[in-house]
Amino acid sequence: MKISIVGATGYAGAELLRLLASHQVAEVKYITSESQPGTAIADIYPHLTRFYPQTLTSLVDLEKLAAESDVIFIGLPHGHAMEVGRKATAINPTIKIIDLGADYRFKNHAVYEEWYKVPHTHREAKTVYGLTELNRSQVREAGIVGNPGCYTTASILALAPLVKNKLVDLTTIIIDAKSGVTGAGRGLNLGSHFSEVFESVKAYNVGGHRHTPEIEEVLGGLAGEELTINFTPHLIPMPRGILSTCYANLKAGVTPEMIDEAYTSQYGNEYFVRLLGRGGYPVTKNTRSSNFCDLGWHIDKRTKRVIAISAIDNLVKGAAGQAIQNMNVMFNIDEKTGLDNAPVYP
């Protein structure tokens, strides 16, 4: 497969390149950057030396890039991917688009515009939300996939069995999630400087994080009704990883065994979801640099709540790895191709 990466210099773009280097049937054709065209990618990311001799190009020649690619990964800020997708699919109707940003994640474009403050310019696109474990059959037929966000992936995978099987009160869902600093991106920002982050933990965007409506839309679709959640993200002084701890009140009559069955039924055959079971404690270090999501759940009999916990690597299962997993499904090849690696430990 001929692959191009539009916006390759961010952390997710670099992670795509790292993972694709060991993908048996993928050839990276073009990599683009509007900020550093003409620069060798290995000069920006020396760890890619010997794997990629390419020089970054500009997106000016989109026609050539689209015509010569089977799939385009887009790693651009929100508001830009839909223009690339619209033009690329017009040039090459058979091309596959996988957007790692937010432009193609929402079914409700008005919600996207409200939270991201830009108009949606590709409303006619037929898109699929690329959480493979939930939407595999749709992803297989998709031309454009909106790759989920990192907090979103961890939280939805943790809550989906509970919501889908109507085991919890939908008005009581609370998500408390922590992310490594790479989730803030590679751009210079005072809040992610070493001296600001080291030996400190902070909450941010309380009540207003843009992954909130994404989680609500997907969980609402599983529940068959709209829902509202409390989602609070935190920044943790580590490079990678997300730990999402999710709370909800159990409905009357729901037993621990029913909770166990819901998770086993949903994920028992999913390779990239590792069920630690009732009483399990996912750890971010155990998923580092891998496409795995570790899940555990607890029943608090005293408060009649279920607490579901998930751990992922925000750059892999929360971004680049999930994008490659979606690509594999879209091209009907083994879903594990290029991703079947043990986590890095310690």
Rank of each mutant, 00 (worst) to 15 (best):
I215G: 01
I41R: 08
I44H: 12
D43K: 08
V71W: 01
P237G: 09
G79I: 10
L16Y: 06
Q54W: 06
V283L: 15
C293E: 05
N249Y: 05
T127F: 07
R136G: 04
K64W: 02
P213T: 02
A158P: 03
K126T: 06
A320W: 07
G79W: 04
N341D: 13
L17N: 11
A248V: 01
S289P: 05
V168G: 00
A67T: 11
L17V: 13
V181W: 08
D294Q: 15
L19N: 07
R140F: 05
L62V: 04
Y129K: 03
L250P: 02
A102P: 05
H209W: 07
S265C: 04
N326V: 00
T171R: 02
T212L: 06
M1Y: 01
M82D: 10
I215T: 06
D176L: 11
G224K: 02
I95S: 01
T212Y: 00
Q54H: 10
T284S: 14
R136V: 10
Y345D: 13
G277N: 13
G241M: 08
T132G: 11
L222V: 01
P256H: 12
G318C: 05
T55E: 10
G38M: 04
Q322F: 05
I91C: 07
T9Q: 13
K164D: 04
R140A: 15
H78M: 09
R123G: 14
Q36E: 14
I156P: 00
S195T: 14
G185N: 10
A40K: 15
L167Y: 02
Q54P: 05
V329M: 03
K107P: 03
A110D: 12
V139I: 14
T127W: 05
L62A: 02
G279A: 09
M238K: 12
A142E: 03
D334M: 10
K304G: 05
T287G: 05
R278H: 12
G321H: 13
D294E: 15
T132K: 12
L190K: 09
C246T: 02
S195Y: 14
S265K: 13
Q266E: 11
A262L: 06
P93C: 08
I3M: 02
N92Y: 03
M330F: 01
H193R: 14
I91E: 04
N108S: 12
V71Y: 03
R18E: 15
T245M: 04
P282Q: 07
L16E: 07
N326W: 00
N269E: 15
R136S: 12
L190P: 04
